[in-house]
Simulated assay, not measured.
Amino acid sequence: MKLCRAEYKTIAKFTDQLKPTRQSLKLLKERFPHHSQSTLLSIFSLEYQKRTKRSISKHHDPDVIESYYQRYLNEAKTRPSSPILLEMANEVDLSPSLLARVVVERFLQDQEDGVFSKQVVSSMLREPTLIPDVHLARQVEQCTVNDCCYGPLVDCIKHAIGHEHEVLLRDKLRERNLSFLDENQLRAKGYDKTPDIILEVPIAVEGHVVHWIESKASFGDDQSHRTYLNEQFWSYWNRFGPGLVIYWYGFIAELDCQRDRGILLKDCFPSDIVTLCHGAGPS
């Protein structure tokens, strides 16, 4: 789904008032019923991450961390069955998973020698039963399950969705009998930084030659697309020639402005593929 920049900004502005919880997704879908839930979630996630980057430093101030931790300890005594960390996260406008990480790190400072690694904390967030405090483990699990923008559950879902769309792309290419090399095959050949697909025989899409295809299971907004251009797409163009980027959950329509320079944007697998070998017609 392609959105004009004005429409994107309307959705983005609405997300400013939302917390990163599952309930917010329902509100978002009710407000914009004609957009898919996947597109809305991707936009919400992008905008919430921008919001978090602007404010995260204040939540890592030592005094603030201590206030969060002491509040948790006090309320855990008086309201042991309440979702304390989840409520706190909503109140201070911080991702539940990020607040859980802050509290777990502070908790570990009081344990034995107080020495721990980021890997230990991450493993506890992935598997809260590793936390040597049953009540805190339950609180962390509540944060992880209810957070729709950050945390190990979100990371796992994003990875699975990304893999699913890469498989879908390969299936679509095979249906068209198009010969290609995928990322794993390219790395086996010694390439270090590659797109998801290199076409062994180029194709034409809407009159533009395509040598490679990149799959993005997300929405393409200004910031993310600019980052991808600088860190990925232009290097692919330099190495392999013009290519196609598929933003499966849509993108801001005005971003599709590099076609003449060799980068084409689509929100689905193209239906009007023309093969370039032996003067063949539409595939």
Rank of each mutant, 00 (worst) to 15 (best):
E7R: 02
A12M: 00
S24P: 01
S24R: 04
K29Q: 08
E30S: 08
Q37K: 15
E47G: 01
S55W: 03
L73N: 07
E75H: 13
T78D: 10
S82P: 05
L85M: 09
E87P: 11
M88K: 08
E91Q: 15
D93R: 15
S95W: 05
P96V: 03
R101Q: 13
Q109E: 15
D110A: 14
K118V: 07
D133P: 00
V134Q: 15
V140N: 09
C143E: 07
P152D: 03
V154H: 08
D155Y: 10
A160H: 08
A160F: 07
V167W: 05
L168N: 11
R170H: 10
R170Q: 15
D182K: 11
Q185P: 00
L186S: 01
L186N: 01
R187T: 01
K189C: 06
Y191M: 07
Y191A: 09
I197P: 02
E200G: 06
H208W: 05
V210M: 01
A217K: 02
S218D: 12
Q223C: 06
Y228D: 08
N238Q: 14
F240G: 06
F240R: 05
P242N: 00
P242L: 03
G243M: 02
V245Y: 00
I252F: 06
R261S: 09
G262F: 06
D267S: 15
I273S: 08
L276R: 09
